[in-house]
């Protein structure tokens, strides 16, 4: 995938997040471009989740700036972030398994005939849009009344992603979307991510532990360790070994191999 030379869609500058005396993020800067998959890699505890929670308005940053399309923004709540175009798909996907695809797709943003919680929903239109939007990124659903609990993990990911995009996400943050899935489902999700990327104007931040997935799909990489960026670059810049080494937090895999051999 070509690296665009457009302006970054989202940029963080020296982002700092402290939990009391504990510094979870210590000056993180990164740039995310439209139409690109930006892999955020790092060991457990590196600060990946904290970074995306700051980006999606769950925590306020202690210091530093967030810029969306060049403008500095401040998020007081997840709602602010959503309105600014940052759509986060959490690990638990924020779905209600007991209700239907359509009801989940429009959860909290139902289409109604007039503006009141007691207004009738435009159910037909909602069914149609949900089906269309999911088809756009590769899943045809036969029955929009199907309960989400009966769908596969991959389909649920697609639903959550389609929902975020439909409701105006310009930046899609995916927190370990493949971690709880089987092999085939993982590939489904990667294909979905690729289709979203092909829409062209959406930037994707992908958090993953899986180096193979990252290499398959990502255009740009940022490695976090102990709350700091220890390396970044495009897929061309980084050779295979680099990725492995940086994912392990910068320790030489070679050294480890020696140690283990003893």
């Amino acid at each position: 995938m070509a690296i665009s030379d457009a302006a970054p869609l989202v940029e963080t500058r020296n982002l700092v997040k402290k939990f009391g005396a504990f510094t979870a993020l210590n000056g993180v800067s990164l740039k995310v471009y439209p139409g690109e998959v930006h892999a955020l890699l790092g060991d457990n505890g590196a600060g990946k989740s904290t970074l995306i929670k700051v980006l999606s308005g769950v925590f306020p940053a202690t210091d530093g700036e967030i810029l969306v399309e060049g403008k500095a923004v401040k998020f007081a709540s997840p709602r602010n972030a959503t309105e600014a175009g940052i759509g986060t798909v959490y690990q638990d996907l924020a779905l209600n398994p007991l209700s239907s695809v359509t009801r989940n797709f429009f959860l909290g943003r139902e289409l109604t005939h007039f503006s009141s919680p007691f207004a009738l929903m435009k159910m037909k239109e909602m069914h149609r849009i949900a089906a269309e939007e999911m088809a756009k990124i590769g899943i045809t659903i036969t029955d929009p009344e199907q309960a989400v609990g009966t769908m596969s993990g991959g389909q649920r990911q697609t639903l959550a992603i389609a929902r975020a995009i439909y409701f105006g996400a310009k930046v899609l943050i995916l927190d370990e979307p493949t971690s709880a899935l089987g092999q085939k489902q993982q590939m489904e999700v990667l294909k979905t991510i690729r289709r979203v990327q092909q829409l062209g104007d959406i930037a994707i931040i992908l958090i993953t532990h899986n180096e193979i997935h990252a290499r398959l799909i990502a255009d740009r990489f940022t490695f976090l360790s102990l709350g700091e960026v220890i390396g970044s670059g495009t897929s061309k810049d980084l050779e295979g070994d680099d990725i492995k080494r940086l994912m392990a937090g910068g320790a030489e895999i070679g050294d480890l191999a020696k140690e283990l051999a003893v």
Binding site: L98, S99, R103, F106, L107, G108, E110, T112, P117, M121
Partner: peptide
Amino acid sequence: RTQAGNWIYSTGGN
């Protein structure tokens, strides 16, 4: 049929 209904289901469902 209403938005409120969807909110009731989702509040109890997840």
